[in-house]
Computed example of a mutant assay.
Amino acid sequence: MHRYSRYVAIGDSQTEGLWDGNDSTGLVGFADRLAALLDAHHPGLEYANLAVRGRRILDLLVEQLPLALAMRPDLITVCIGMNDVTRPGPYFDRALADLDTLHGRLAESGATVVTTTFPDLTQILPVGRVIASRVLRINEEIRAAAQRHDFRLVDLYGAPSMADPQTWSPDRVHGSTQGHILFAAAAAEALDLPGSSHDWAQPEGMRRSSIRARAHSQVLWTNNLLMPWLWRSVRGRSEGDGRGPKRPRLTRVPV
Rank of each mutant, 00 (worst) to 15 (best):
G81W: 09
R87F: 06
V28M: 14
L69H: 05
D84M: 04
V85A: 07
R105W: 13
V62H: 11
L99N: 00
L125Q: 04
A51F: 01
T112H: 02
P73Q: 13
V62A: 11
R72C: 05
P126N: 10
A36C: 06
R33M: 08
H103M: 12
T101C: 05
T77P: 02
F30R: 01
T77G: 03
T101S: 12
D23C: 05
D98C: 03
L121W: 15
N22I: 05
T25K: 15
P66V: 13
L125H: 09
Q64V: 04
A31M: 02
G54D: 07
T122I: 02
A51E: 03
T122D: 09
H103G: 04
F30D: 06
H41T: 15
L34S: 07
R55I: 00
R87Y: 10
Y47H: 15
A51Q: 02
A95R: 07
I124L: 12
V78Y: 01
G54L: 10
L61S: 03
G54Q: 10
P126D: 08
Q64I: 03
G81A: 11
G104I: 08
G26S: 10
D59S: 11
G81Q: 05
A51P: 02
F30I: 01
A70K: 09
D23N: 13
S109C: 05
L27H: 12
T86S: 13
T116F: 03
A31F: 05
G26L: 10
S109T: 02
P66E: 13
H42R: 10
D100M: 00
L65F: 10
F92K: 11
T122C: 12
D100F: 00
A95S: 14
V78T: 09
V113G: 00
S109H: 02
L65W: 07
A40M: 08
P73Y: 09
L69R: 09
T115P: 00
L102Q: 04
L38N: 07
A35Q: 08
Q64L: 06
M82P: 00
N83D: 12
G44C: 11
T86I: 13
C79G: 12
D84E: 12
H42N: 14
A97P: 00
L45M: 11
R72S: 15
I57Y: 01
L121H: 15
A35R: 02
E108T: 11
P90K: 07
D32R: 10
A70P: 02
L34Y: 11
L106R: 01
D23H: 15
F92V: 09
P119K: 03
I80C: 12
H42T: 14
G29W: 05
L58K: 15
A31I: 04
D23R: 13
L102V: 05
V28E: 15
R53I: 06
F118S: 02
L75P: 06
N49E: 09
R55Q: 15
